[in-house]
């Protein structure tokens, strides 16, 4: 087991669904052609089918302590890297051609159900759920790999050793969060690497450091000075997604609040939450409801003129303090030959 554990907290009350995280990750890690369809970081509108489509119904993880093999998600279920006919449109090659996806028309993509959500108008609701590999403490992928190609580093980052990987894809079946992709050119599985080359230099992850919503906190869980420690361990306002999958994720979420509901007559309903508690419980378990109660209470406190240490940390007055010491500005790094 790893000696320490790097973790991330995502505050869902600040997420904009803007995908700057997604793009930051893609431009850095997954731009090779065979990786074009991969999105190690995704953001989905919830409730929704997500990425890959219906991933929450695909199985995997642990049940009664035993590893499970679930569905192997297909390229179509993730959403493919659609090709287009730009040249044809610009050069007048085909009269009247408009810009279209070439080949088979897609039926799903990594953000297909963006801003659709659920509920009955005017009690409609949705929120955004960004996801990366959870770098679990009990990683199902590690357990499932017959090649022992998946390693948990001493800093807690889970990586696929691409030299050992033979592309059997048991990991993809075992991961209940379905955050592993297959690279057909290299014949290996690939996934979020928690930006280890950056982290090794004290630079926070691209998805976290580039997040304009300022929702992501990074750090060692046992570092009592880090925001992640405080939010997860001390105050317990950040919780795991689908804890029942049994893999002990190290990405934690501050559960979402939502606007007041309307009652049947169109008046404001100040008692019942717009996002049904059942749905939050489905995602984050009983701990999620408890975390939300704490957030609600703290917000009531500040509204009445009080102070909240928890909310002050979530505000992140000093942005660089979100990163648990991983606050090196990459633009200050100089490179020399080894």
């Amino acid at each position: 087991m790893s000696k320490r554990q790097l973790a991330m907290v995502m505050d869902l009350n600040k997420c904009l669904g803007c995908h700057t995280c997604t793009v930051a990750c893609k431009r850095l890690w997954t731009r090779d052609e065979a990786m074009e369809y991969m999105w190690w970081n995704t953001v989905n509108t919830m409730p929704g089918k997500g990425t890959p489509r219906d991933w929450e119904e695909m199985g995997g993880g642990f049940k009664d302590g035993k590893p499970q093999l679930g569905h192997l998600p297909s390229r179509e279920e993730f959403g493919d890297a659609w090709k287009y006919n730009h040249e044809e449109v610009f050069s007048g090659g085909k009269a009247g051609a408009h810009l279209e996806i070439q080949g088979k028309k897609p039926e799903w993509g990594p953000n297909w159900d963006e801003d659709q959500g659920a509920g009955e108008y005017p009690n409609s609701y949705f929120f955004y759920l960004p996801r990366i590999c959870n770098h679990c403490s009990s990683p199902a992928c590690v357990a499932a790999c017959p090649r022992k190609a998946i390693e948990k580093r001493e800093d807690g980052i889970v990586v696929i050793n691409e030299d050992r990987c033979r592309g059997y894809r048991f990991c993809m079946e075992a991961c209940p969060y379905k955050k592993i992709y297959f690279n057909p050119d290299k014949g290996v599985s690939q996934k979020c690497i928690f930006c280890f080359p950056r982290v090794e230099q004290g630079v926070s992850n691209a998805c976290a450091r580039q997040c304009p919503g300022r929702i992501r906190f990074v750090g060692y869980l046992d570092d009592e000075n880090s925001a992640v420690h405080k939010l997860v361990k001390k105050w317990k306002v950040a919780v795991r997604l689908h804890p029942e999958y049994g893999t002990k994720p190290n990405v934690y979420y501050v559960p979402p609040t939502s606007p007041m509901k309307f009652d049947a007559d169109g008046h404001l309903d100040e008692k019942n939450p717009r996002i049904p508690e059942d749905y939050l419980k489905f995602l984050f378990g009983e701990e999620g409801l408890e975390a939300k109660r704490i957030i609600d209470k703290e917000m009531a406190t500040v509204r009445n003129g009080g102070k909240s240490e928890i909310l002050s940390v979530l505000i992140a007055y000093k942005w660089s303090e979100m990163f648990g010491g991983f606050d090196t500005d990459p633009a200050t790094i100089e490179w020399t030959e080894v």
């Binding site: 995908h19 700057t20 431009r27 304009p212 300022r214 000093k318």
Partner: peptide, 24 residues
């Protein structure tokens, strides 16, 4: 690739800073 230039400082202690300005 590009990554935000994060040199903005708080204008006041009790107000958050502008980092990291940018979008997808």
């Amino acid at each position: 690739r590009e990554e935000q230039n994060t040199i903005y400082e708080q204008t006041r202690e009790d107000v958050p800073d502008f980092n990291p300005r940018g979008c997808q």
